[in-house]
Design a protein around this nucleic acid. Structure first.
Lengths: 212, 212
DNA sequence: TCAAAAGTGTTCTATCTACACCCATGT
DNA sequence: ACATGGGTGTAGATAGAACACTTTTGA
């Protein structure tokens, strides 16, 4: 008789920090794959819904709620030491909201997706898929709402897009696109921020996922 | 101690039959949900890869190999009678290749996706997701190769697109798009088929999935 | 008055959409 | 010769890409 496979949820948590797309990793302090960085995750025992389990993990790691969370892919035997199934999710968060756990010797840490070390459990592949998905969905959804605070300047929004897409965008075209598609709207307020003209503040017209 | 969740793979098998998108369903002859139609599927015990398990199920139901098969979504507790996880896949097949099992009293049967009965295990939702995915991917990939024989006429290809998208297309624009994007190429042969000009035959330039 | 970032419009190009006539064949 | 479906091109509309100058502020 085959032993029942282990089921885990894992979460790719993205934030834009220092104008770069970064992912939250934890340091494995026990075998298997001890000493490597890996995606946060945990076993699923069937007593809750799968997405609730992923969401609980996300809250545990970041302290933040009501984030954009989407199922990515399910992989078998990422951990070759035993029959296993891993259901991957990804989430987008504004780094300002994050309160990382700092109790351990090696606390969780952000890593740039374009400069990842070799990770445990083929997590590099999982992250590569997640990056591809986020890049694609940024184009035709409003999921960026989950990366930014309630109010933000157009420059901040554009920087988030540029960090994720990995290339620069034209300011005028970006503004037109965001306003014409009604993804965002002006709040009427402005923010003074140095020796230059103040930036108008915007908000997302919806903080629920919307397809364009 | 919670009992270990049951893990299953289920497969949404699509074909275009009678100018309509249809899905292959089996009839449940035992509880739970006895008497209802449902998607083919089976338990996964961890001894193979997950996709291999889905592919084996696909071969078992259709007798056909080398089909387009893609993971769709993983759902928890579709079957509420026990902790469970179902990993759904979808596949596209040319109905000409299918040899259905016919041994049972209620053999598997094709059902039009626009006129499904109430299915077991919330399978209606799974199929709705699969239909949405296929419609979307038809637009920016060549996955239709898996629905058609080696050689086909442009009319046959267009009919498949129309059946899946659910609306009619312009012949000239369709031809231009398929040829300009180099999804298909002429074979040089033609097929005589009635009291009218013969139709040129085409083949897919690639029978591996390609993004446009 | 100068430096720094914010705000704004137009032109060009490429892509998509709409649309009508001639062609090859079987009966 | 006629009915049937197959093959083809062009014009207009729409969406996306490229691009430069003016404005407001703090020092």
């Amino acid at each position: 008789m085959q032993q029942a496979p282990v089921i885990a949820t894992i979460v790719v948590i993205f934030a834009v920090i220092d104008d770069a797309l970064q992912v939250l990793l934890i340091h494995r302090s026990a075998p298997p794959e001890e000493g490597l960085w890996a995606l946060p995750g945990g076993r699923w025992d069937g007593s809750t819904g799968l997405e609730e389990a992923a969401e609980a993990k996300l809250v545990e790691e970041t302290g933040a709620r009501d984030l954009y969370l989407e199922q990515l892919f399910t992989s078998s035997n990422l951990d070759p030491t035993q029959p296993s199934l891993a259901v991957a999710y990804f989430a987008l968060i504004d780094e300002e909201l994050v309160r990382l756990r700092i109790s351990e010797e090696w606390p969780p840490a952000w890593h740039r997706v374009d400069a990842l070390p070799a990770l445990a459990f083929r997590n590099n592949e999982v992250i590569a898929q997640a990056v591809a998905r986020v890049r694609a969905k940024l184009e035709y959804t409003n999921i960026a709402y989950s990366l930014l605070p309630e109010q933000f300047t157009l420059r901040e929004l554009q920087s988030a897009y540029e960090a994720i897409e990995g290339h620069l965008l034209d300011r005028r075209n970006f503004r037109k696109r965001m306003l014409q598609t009604e993804v965002i709207e002006a709040t009427g307020e402005a923010r003074r921020d140095g020796p230059h003209r103040p930036a108008l503040l915007y908000r997302f017209t919806s903080r629920e996922p919307v397809f364009l």
